[in-house]
Design a protein around this nucleic acid. Structure first.
Lengths: 120, 120
DNA sequence: TGAACATATGAACAGCTCTTCAGATGTTGT
DNA sequence: ACAACATCTGAAGAGCTGTTCATATGTTCA
């Protein structure tokens, strides 16, 4: 597993350097990633997201029903997720419909389920 | 007793039922998934995990250096991650080497980086 | 065995987070 | 314009979390 350690004395190789820079996770990036995970790491928000993963699109009141918390709590939770670009919303009359923002979020939610299955 | 009402009229379709059960995320499962994400959702722990993703295997003191926190803080953080099955450890003399527990964790960390890149 | 080292553990405190409550904003139908 | 509805917002308190300090455990080498 010590793959990168071997390049010590060689002249610069643009391709390799770019690949390395691409692979390296800066402290700043890791912190932003933590922020992403932190938002998924709350039972209410996670249940909201998995409800959206299944249903595709739901309004606040349907989400509140599905997750069994108050409208207000759902609204607060969705604001955090929306601000972070994890969900997107669309107004239709007085309802506002929420959906997962992009394919990466869907993949993330799917993949993590796999992890849980393997663990047990 | 209201839970079974929907399967009253139709004959069972084993394939469809299995597929649906497989896709559905129970409240309990969502909560356990939240727990997983919560553990990734701390700057220190995230940086530890990405350090391990890059290096493969590191001892506590190297991790403390890499992430710039005290040995004690690292130890506390690693205990949480180890208990949750996110990292695994191996003793070698007085050092203890930590690594990511499985391929799913690695994929999860990789995939989330992709999400961050797209967002910007 | 004893000293030095690497890591683990427990208690405690500061800071953050989630929920709730009260009230505000925006929308529809009459 | 008004009432009913759906959602949002701000403030505040209870509870949780991460770090630190002090101490314990386990390992190596002399």
């Amino acid at each position: 597993m010590a793959g990168l350690d071997s390049c010590v004395v060689l002249e610069p190789d643009a391709g390799r350097v770019a690949a390395t820079r691409d692979r390296l996770v800066t402290p700043d990036e890791a912190t932003r990633l933590a922020e992403l995970f932190r938002l998924l790491g709350d039972p209410t928000r996670a249940r909201l997201l998995y409800a959206l993963l299944e249903a595709g699109e739901l309004c606040v009141c349907d989400l509140a029903d599905a997750v069994e918390v108050t409208d207000t709590a759902v609204s607060h939770a969705l604001r955090l997720l929306r601000t972070a670009g994890i969900v997107a919303s669309r107004r239709a009359g007085r309802m506002i419909y929420y959906r997962l923002a992009d394919a990466h979020v869907r993949m993330l939610l799917d993949l993590s389920r796999e992890h849980l299955k393997e663990e047990r």
